[in-house]
Design a protein around this nucleic acid. Structure first.
Lengths: 117, 117
DNA sequence: ATGAATGGTGATAAAATTATCACTAAGGGA
DNA sequence: TCCCTTAGTGATAATTTTATCACCATTCAT
């Protein structure tokens, strides 16, 4: 998320986790991939608001961090698929827990933000 | 985290959660408060790398979002304490799950980042 | 009156993330 | 050859988050 000048504290789980999945789209991407959406093109369509370029960068980071793996099929047209690694799968319970917490908190947040204005 | 121009999607739990806790220090702060560190001054000391100003802003947001409540004791010197609301407490299992996942992933991330260079 | 301790804010700079746009590459078909 | 589809990248702008620094307020003790 935000962790370059102040280096990662490998002793702090929160610091490590933030480094790896603390950005706007990571959880969404992992979620969609786990649901079977694996091609970049399909992910762009599935994730509301993301652009091709940003998705590409996030996929690259998830791949570098070892949460996703890429497979290239030499078909026509070219087909590329991303799938979860074991580490990626180990994150799924967290993704769904965060998602569920957010759903439960949604109405409260809505109320708060609408009252503010 | 990054959600002003593209408005929050209240139907998406991940979007809601990111809005509320998707920033560098929120989880750390909730974690420390849950451990009994409640005063701004003590939080600054407890959280490695955070500054007074940034902490203040994060506390204000957590308060606005209804995860923390503030109590002012008119003592000398002035004492202010933040404590978790019910919503804040409902987040604790998540905080600890993220922390534990991060701890488990720490060595892998370390290896990956050191190999890259 | 002065200073120490605590909590807080405003202005601005710095850093990081995300968005936009144009571009390349490979393969195949008309 | 020209175009289509899919995947990917480079350069740069826009946006947001974090960091830094100086400052104010309150209360009490000296």
């Amino acid at each position: 998320m935000y962790q370059r000048k102040i280096p990662i504290d490998y002793e702090c789980g929160l610091s490590v986790a933030m480094e790896v999945v603390g950005s706007k789209w990571k959880f969404c991407i992992l979620d969609e991939v786990s649901k079977g959406i694996k091609r970049p093109k399909d992910l762009v369509n599935a994730i509301n608001g993301i652009t091709k370029r940003v998705l590409q960068k996030q996929l690259r980071e998830l791949e570098l961090h070892g949460l996703l793996e890429k497979t290239i099929y030499t078909e026509v047209p070219l087909r590329v698929e991303y799938h979860l690694t074991a580490s990626g799968r180990s994150l799924l319970p967290l993704v769904s827990a965060v998602d569920q917490w957010g759903m439960g908190f949604s109405s409260q947040l809505k109320t708060i933000l609408e009252t503010e204005e």
